[in-house]
């Protein structure tokens, strides 16, 4: 019991740290592309760590599968949104 709880604490804690770092990056980085870069870390790895940390707390296998699905769907939407925003930036100012 204690082992699974320690596992959850460590992984969810690590995920929270990544979200904090991603938010800091979103607020502090100078341009859109690097802000997106910071955000994707929080979205992908941060949420992934939180989900992995919560897996031992699931009461059923289907509950765990739903959590993993949430992560995968969030990945898909976050990746698409990043690509769309980056594409819009790229088209607006054709840089080097």
């Amino acid at each position: 019991m204690a082992a699974t709880e320690a596992f959850t604490l460590v992984f969810v804690g690590a995920g929270a740290v990544l979200f904090l770092a991603g938010t800091l990056g979103l607020l502090r980085f100078p341009d859109t592309l690097s802000r997106l870069h910071a955000l994707s870390k929080a979205d992908n790895l941060g949420l992934g760590l939180v989900v992995v940390g919560l897996l031992p707390q699931c009461e059923s296998v289907t509950g765990a599968l739903k959590l993993v699905c949430v992560w995968l769907l969030a990945q898909l939407s976050a990746a698409t949104a990043s690509q769309l925003i980056a594409g819009a930036v790229y088209r607006r100012k054709p840089g080097p």
Partner: peptide, 15 residues
């Protein structure tokens, strides 16, 4: 239509 959007529109609807 941006390509990522078309990709999402093909992947997501079944789910």
């Amino acid at each position: 239509v941006p390509e990522p959007l078309a990709y999402l529109a093909q992947m997501l609807p079944p789910f």
